[in-house]
Simulated scan of single mutants.
Amino acid sequence: MRKKARTPAGEFLTDVILDLFRLNSGLLTAGDRLVAGLGLTSARWQILGAISATERPQPVAWLARDLGANRQNVQRIVNDLAEDGLVRFEANPHHRRAQLVVLTDAGRQAFDAAMSLQAPWINRLSDGLAVDDIKAAHRVIMRLQANLDGMIEADGPN
């Protein structure tokens, strides 16, 4: 079987993606360290953030969709957060089985504390980067996400 050649853009993007994988791993490790004293992990912090960002309570499936994450993984983390009293479940008037996830006061306090730690950390991480470069990187990432979403939709559930 003959291997298909990459385009020049595909060649460079392959290197970028490998670097992004390493960056993601480093960010998760750094996030875990940053919020460990609060009893959080990067994953728990991310879920608290997703819940905090919604205008109204949402079911786990919607949170997972918004995060681009696996519903079962989000459900597991939400269950852990509920066990720790950081979120609670409320009845969903639109779907009897898909309960809504709501931050508790303790969850709000934990998220706010994490964000207080994040501000100086992110400022330090962004040292030496121009805002225009960060915006350009964001545009590229959003375009890649849109292309990926389009490919997934076109290819179906396979």
Rank of each mutant, 00 (worst) to 15 (best):
K3F: 06
R6S: 08
T7E: 02
T7K: 03
A9Y: 11
E11G: 01
E11M: 05
T14A: 08
L18P: 05
D19K: 13
D19R: 15
S25L: 11
G26H: 06
L27W: 06
L27M: 11
L27A: 10
L28W: 11
T29G: 09
T29L: 13
G31K: 03
G31C: 01
V35C: 03
L40M: 07
L40D: 01
S42C: 09
A43W: 11
R44F: 05
I51C: 03
R56Y: 07
P57V: 00
P59S: 01
V60K: 02
A61G: 04
W62H: 07
L63R: 06
R65E: 14
D66S: 13
L67R: 05
L67Q: 11
L67V: 07
A69V: 02
R71C: 08
R71Y: 08
V74E: 02
V74S: 03
R76Y: 10
I77M: 00
V78W: 03
N79A: 14
D80E: 15
L81M: 02
L81P: 02
A82G: 04
E83H: 02
L86F: 00
V87L: 10
V87S: 04
F89D: 02
E90L: 08
R96S: 14
R96A: 11
A98P: 00
A98I: 03
A98K: 13
Q99W: 01
Q99R: 15
L100S: 06
D105N: 08
A110S: 14
A110I: 00
F111V: 03
F111L: 15
D112V: 14
D112C: 07
A114Y: 02
A114K: 01
A114F: 01
L117H: 06
L117M: 02
A119Y: 09
P120F: 08
W121D: 02
I122Y: 14
N123M: 13
N123I: 12
R124V: 05
R124I: 03
R124P: 04
D127L: 10
G128K: 04
L129A: 10
A130Y: 06
V131H: 08
A136H: 07
A137L: 14
A137N: 12
H138R: 14
R139L: 10
M142D: 13
M142L: 15
A146P: 01
L148K: 10
L148G: 09
L148F: 12
D149H: 12
G150H: 05
G150M: 00
M151N: 08
E153F: 08
N158I: 11
N158E: 13
